[in-house]
């Protein structure tokens, strides 16, 4: 029998298995791929936090380093970009879970001290000191599959005999390593990391087979917003990928994904509420048709 999905705990926050969560992207970078520095300014970033929370975000994911290669951002600078801002968000919204998008334990330490609840290690466990640090703070950890890819590089002719088998093996291994380091299993999330160490065919395959990840029992993070595999599938530029993103989101939600990292929070919230209603996990907001 397959393990059941259970409650996810991120420090003081608990999320029931039926609740589909929106993780809103807030970049503290001048050069991230989609928003291109719109929230580089701190007040603009806080404005975005206000907006995404009003739009229904459950988690705010704060990042200080873009995924793409480019200008180097060292630890000091990454901390400077993220930690004070996390502290400000924590002060303004005690009930919202805060995630930090980093692979470096030094950054995670400062972020947790500032109030972060979850470390979104989207480069797949490159820093061996990260799990113990997270255990110390009682925070959550995202265990992501990136194949052999190094941080801030692009995939180059990657191939897998079976990409989903590799995703399951690598994420399970990272999760086991985290548990061994003392991380509470209720705080661990897995992520196929679409586009990371994958070509578009691979990202489509992991989408198609997302149920295999959900079957592990670990909560599954789905990070697909505006990504290149959607752009390549539809032959559309960044600004035109919302429909593709939402289509992918709904499929992943149907197949058992639980957390959805998004640029377009209001639309993602609607899709997830719709899917949750179709699944029967959530009642319609207002149903009177034929009932009056």
């Amino acid at each position: 029998m397959r393990p059941k999905q259970t409650t996810l705990r991120l420090r003081g926050h608990s999320f029931a298995p039926e609740r589909l969560l929106v993780m809103a992207i807030v970049n503290r970078t001048p050069d991230s791929f989609f928003d291109a520095g719109q929230t580089w300014d701190e007040s603009a970033a806080m404005e975005r936090v206000h907006q995404v929370i009003a739009d229904g975000a459950d988690i705010v994911d704060i990042g200080g380093v873009p995924a793409a290669p480019g200008r180097q951002v060292d630890v000091t600078e990454e901390i400077r970009r993220t930690a004070p801002f996390i502290s400000a968000v924590r002060g303004a919204y005690p009930d919202v879970a805060i995630s930090v998008d980093t692979w470096r334990h030094e950054v995670a330490a400062e972020a947790c001290a500032a109030g972060a609840d979850l470390i979104n290690d989207s480069w797949g466990g490159k820093d061996a000191k990260l799990p113990a640090l997270i255990a110390e703070y009682g925070a959550g950890l995202v265990c992501a599959h990136v194949g052999e890819q190094q941080p801030r590089t692009r995939p180059f002719r990657v191939s897998y005999p079976d990409v989903m088998a590799d995703v399951l093996e690598q994420t399970e291994l990272l999760a086991a390593r985290a548990v061994e380091a003392g991380v509470d299993p209720a705080c661990i999330v897995i992520d196929a990391a679409h586009d990371f160490g994958k070509n578009s065919w691979h990202s489509l395959e992991v989408t198609r087979r997302l149920a295999e990840m959900a079957a592990t029992g670990w909560p599954v993070l789905v990070s697909v917003s505006r990504k290149d595999f959607i752009g390549e599938t539809l032959d559309l530029a960044l600004q035109d990928r919302l429909a593709g993103t939402l289509a992918t989101t709904s499929i992943c939600a149907w197949l058992g994904g639980r957390i959805f990292r998004a640029h377009d929070v209001a639309q993602t919230r609607q899709v997830l509420d719709m899917v949750a209603a179709i699944k029967g996990d959530q009642p319609p907001a207002r149903a009177v048709r034929g009932l009056t």
Binding site: N199, W201, H202, R209, A211, L255
Partner: peptide
Amino acid sequence: DLAAFAPGIGGAVLAPGDDPQEPPATDRG
């Protein structure tokens, strides 16, 4: 092994009614 680069390139991976939790058999390259 084309499937190593493009899983699913051979056509529909899941026929309607298939259990999506059962991965399809694939040829190993």
